[in-house]
Each structure stands twice: as structure tokens, then as C-alpha cells.
Design a protein around this nucleic acid. Structure first.
Lengths: 198, 198
DNA sequence: CCTACCGATCGGTAGG
DNA sequence: CCTACCGATCGGTAGG
């Protein structure tokens, strides 16, 4: 994803280094001079690769969004699965997409609000649609009796996404646990809870 | 919590309005001129109430931290409770503290990283100590057999805090559900999971 | 709480 | 990719 230009390789490098900077200091506190220094060039030279500071943020946020959408579509193709299995696969897919680029994931989560209009509106619309498709899985699970009738669906889906989206803040890719296993355990905790079932 | 000065009422108003601004735009993107305008005064006049922009952030973050600590200490006094009940009460207490000031809670969560040293170190140390006390409850629950032996304790406690800390981002205080009930349901979801137990 | 102001830094452009 | 530069805005101070 992203745009393919003749200078795409250097542009991608600029974006990758910018993502690290944005993650560390936040988008607003990261200056184009900081970014240029990390790349060993002058600030003005950045503009031969990108149109603006915001273009970088836009690419980071919308590329991640596209990856999340593609992952979810794979899960939704499997229409015959029980809702709890669809949810589990959706969670694992979401975690895998994040694990592919933890830096961009952190920027996606923490910095998207600095997009200006109309991009911000587009972004938020995509996000609400994505969340609602997970909410649909939970509702389906309640309807089939897999999940409790007593759950507050909004609370359930927001708790789910809180857990998922904070993962880049604490997950150490050098740790023993792999992304798929992490997704599996996270899904287990949310679906089955901490409690030992007798 | 908070400093008591002769001008404390006006100072508190400055801090409350700043919290709203920081929540909306982020700390770095909020200018002292924005804040002054919201208060109907000139930017320079702010400095008769506060020492610096960062002092406001410092007060917001450390006052919230003190409230969280006080709430947790109340729970830990009840040493005879089973671990799962301690955890439930800890969760409800955390949610109640946040619900008392959703704006400051959002700033606490999203903007603390803009504290400079040594405040940032102090803040992060307090936070890790707080989290570890919840981790202790989970470990106790595993030891007593209340919780599953198979759970990854780091994942469990980080999932817990992800869910708690994002609450200010989506909870609508005008909604039907009250903070204590919200805490109760959140604890139920994390402890018992979504699944219908046969 | 105000007027008047400061040095620093910001994102970005012109022109090569 | 560079030099040279721009207008705007930043947090904060002096002095009242």
C-alpha cells in the first residue's frame, strides 16, 4: 500500500524514520528538522520526497487502516464459522497486522487525531465501520447463545479494542511470546475471562 | 493533591479549562494563547496563576495519580478478601476515580509523556508500582486457584489497564450506565469473559 | 490582569 | 539535496 513513485524507496525510508520519531515524541512535538537530522539531510530537502508533514501522518494512518480492513475481510469470508470463532480470528488478525509494524501501529492509535479535515473525518468513519463489524460478531454470538445475554455490547467492543490497541505500548517483539500466540491468549482472556472454570 | 494558595480558586479554574483544551487538541498543540482566550484574558496574564505550561500538566497528572493510589489503598486494607474480589474492587475503584474527572483522566493517560525529567521518571515509577499491585492480585488469584494457571500475567494486567484507561475515550457520562455499574460490568467481562457458562 | 516585547523555533518555499 | 530565507507562532518576562 502507499504510493508508488520513482523515488518510492527513499520516500518509504523517510516515512519509516518519521514513524519512529512520531512514536517517541508525538506528531506535534516532532519537527521536520528532527526528522531531517535523523536522516542526515537538511530539513528543506525532505520536501523533495514528501509534500508536507501531514502527508506522512496520512500515509501512516491510512496504510494501517487498509491493512486492518484487508485482514477483517479475510475473516468475514468464512461465513460458516461460529461467532466466537470469527471473533477469535478477527482478534488474531488485528494483532498480526499490528505486529507487522508496531511503530506505525502506535502512531495510528495515538496520532491520528492530528489529521486535518477532511482526512480526519474519513479516518474516523473507517474506524467506526471497522469497530461495528466486530460489534456485529459479538451481537451474533449473543444471538446464538455463545455469549452471555447480559453483556453490554458497547462496553464489550470498546474493551476489546482498548486491549488490542494498547498492545504496541507494551508488547516486546523480542519476548518469548509470538504475535499469533499473543492474539490467541488475548482472545482467550476476553472470551473466557481470567477465572478458572470448574 | 493540588496546592492551596490564596488564589487557588482561579488557579483551579485555569487548570480545569486547560485540561479540556489538552484533552481536545493534545498538550503540545495547545498554546497558552488558546488557553488564555478560553478564559477571556491575555496569555501573559496566565503566569500570575501558574508558573509554566508544564506546571499545569504536572498538577493534572500527579493529582490523578494520587487519587488512584488512595483508591487502591482502600482496597488493600481488606486483606481477608479473596483475590478475585480484591481485583473486582480495585477495578471499580479505578473506574470511579476516572469517572470523577473524565477530562483529567484522558489527559493523564494521553499526555503524561510530555512531562520533562525528573517528573516523567517519578510519574512512570508511580505507575509501574500501581500496576504491579494489580498484578499481585492476579498472581494471588492464580495461587489460590481462583484464576487459571495458564494465563500470561503480564498480558492479563496490561489488558486490564488497557481496558480501564481507554474508558474516558468512549464513556458518555450522560448514558444510562453509572460508573459503579460500569466498573462492575468491566470487571465481570475481564474475570468471567464474554462466554456463556453452561 | 494588561501592554509591549523577546529569542527560539516552526512548516514550508525559491531557486539552484 | 543544498543555501538562504519567510511569516507565523511559540512559551515566557519586564514592568506596571
Amino acid at each position: 500500500m502507499g504510493e508508488v513513485l520513482s523515488s518510492s524507496s527513499r520516500k518509504e525510508q523517510v516515512i519509516r524514520v518519521a514513524a519512529e520519531l512520531f512514536r517517541e515524541k508525538g506528531y506535534v512535538a516532532s519537527s521536520m528538522r528532527d526528522l531531517a537530522q535523523k536522516l542526515g539531510i537538511e530539513a528543506a530537502s525532505l520536501y523533495s520526497h514528501i509534500k508536507s508533514k501531514e502527508e506522512i501522518l496520512h500515509i501512516l494512518c491510512f496504510d494501517m487502516a487498509a491493512d486492518f480492513m484487508a485482514s477483517l475481510e479475510e475473516v468475514e469470508k468464512q461465513q460458516d464459522l461460529p461467532a466466537s470463532e470469527k471473533l477469535r480470528k478477527g482478534i488474531i488478525g488485528h494483532i498480526q497486522v499490528m505486529a507487522q509494524d508496531l511503530t506505525a501501529s502506535a502512531v495510528f492509535m495515538n496520532e491520528h487525531r492530528h489529521l486535518s479535515q477532511p482526512s480526519l473525518r474519513d479516518f474516523l468513519l473507517m474506524r467506526i465501520r471497522y469497530i461495528n463489524r466486530f460489534k456485529g460478531m459479538i451481537e451474533e454470538g449473543v444471538a446464538t447463545g455463545e455469549f452471555k445475554k447480559s453483556i453490554d455490547k458497547k462496553l464489550a467492543v470498546m474493551t476489546l479494542f482498548s486491549s488490542l490497541n494498547w498492545m504496541p505500548m507494551w508488547y516486546d517483539p523480542k519476548a518469548a511470546i509470538e504475535p499469533v500466540e499473543l492474539g490467541f491468549q488475548l482472545a482467550d482472556m476476553l472470551i473466557n475471562g481470567l477465572k478458572q472454570n470448574k
